[in-house]
């Protein structure tokens, strides 16, 4: 039988989670958070909220929760039209050769690996440094090791073919008994950071920020705050990309130039 959680219970949970993790879960879309927490309750056979609130003080429990609660990227090269559009930018704009790239709220590795494979196919000669944030150590280890979901391998491959950029997707895959990992040669300039990106004062600037489908799970006040933060970390002329069905917060809309409206690619004025 599915667990149920009322409004007051969710308030207790999101408050405790925010305090323990530094993530602003109170400003996440509560129906989304509720789905994730209920699924977590069911996976770990948790019977009640009191037990959850007790266990959350355990580092191991919190780690499991933070691993579980973030949403995996659905597939590599999701939205091939987006990647085709990004390809043009990569090939034509030197800004990506001279600046770092950031995935502030990565779910799983698929989006990052897609980008790195794209760079490799074009033989740009020099990889930009790529940074990513995730709250879970074990998820970071998975991403660093290049792990991808084997059950989606056909989807990854088909999306890659739809890019029509040449190259062979299979070339980047190493098959093991129970897993598939991407070739570690493309991971050499990748640097992970653990935690919530907004809580770390950092003056680093980026030429491209990937933020696709992250805002879906944030309320509007958090979207505003996050987007302003990301904007401040873009170099002049730098790019930010969001999901196909996400909007730039109204407060930021007139500060960005539209590069590709359909594929949701925007640029900070130079």
């Amino acid at each position: 039988m599915a667990a149920t959680l009322g409004i007051n219970e969710m308030r207790l949970i999101s408050g405790a989670l925010s305090n323990r993790s530094g993530y602003p879960f109170e400003n996440f879309v509560q129906s989304f958070l509720k789905r994730r927490i209920i699924a977590f309750f069911e996976k770990y056979h948790l019977r009640n909220v009191d037990l959850f609130l007790k266990q959350i003080n355990s580092k191991l429990f919190l780690e499991s929760l933070l691993y579980f609660i973030s949403v995996d990227t659905t597939e590599m090269f999701r939205d091939p039209g987006f990647w085709r559009s990004l390809r043009k930018i990569i090939l034509s704009d030197a800004i990506l050769k001279n600046n770092s790239v950031w995935f502030p709220d990565i779910g799983s590795g698929e989006e990052l690996f897609s980008f790195l494979i794209l760079l490799d196919v074009f033989e740009l000669g020099r990889y930009p440094n790529v940074f990513f944030h995730h709250p879970s150590s074990s998820r970071i280890d998975e991403i660093r090791s290049g792990m991808i979901k084997s059950r989606n391998i056909e989807t990854h491959n088909n999306n890659f073919k739809r890019l029509e950029i040449g190259g062979q997707f299979e070339k980047y895959c190493n098959y093991h008994t129970n897993s598939i990992v991407v070739s570690n040669t493309i991971l050499k300039s990748v640097f992970p950071k653990k935690g919530w990106f907004l809580s770390e004062p950092d003056n680093q600037m980026f030429g491209l920020i990937f933020f696709r489908n992250s805002m879906l799970y944030m309320d509007k006040s958090l979207q505003d705050k996050v987007f302003q933060f990301l904007y401040n970390h873009l170099v002049p002329g730098g790019y930010i990309v969001i999901g196909a069905k996400e909007n730039v917060p109204v407060s930021m809309a007139n500060k960005l130039l539209i590069v590709d409206e359909q594929e949701r690619i925007f640029r900070k004025p130079a």
Partner: peptide
């Protein structure tokens, strides 16, 4: 959603 909006998800 309760505020009569649509929420999308990639779960």
């Amino acid at each position: 959603e309760f505020d009569n909006t649509i929420a999308l998800s990639t779960e």
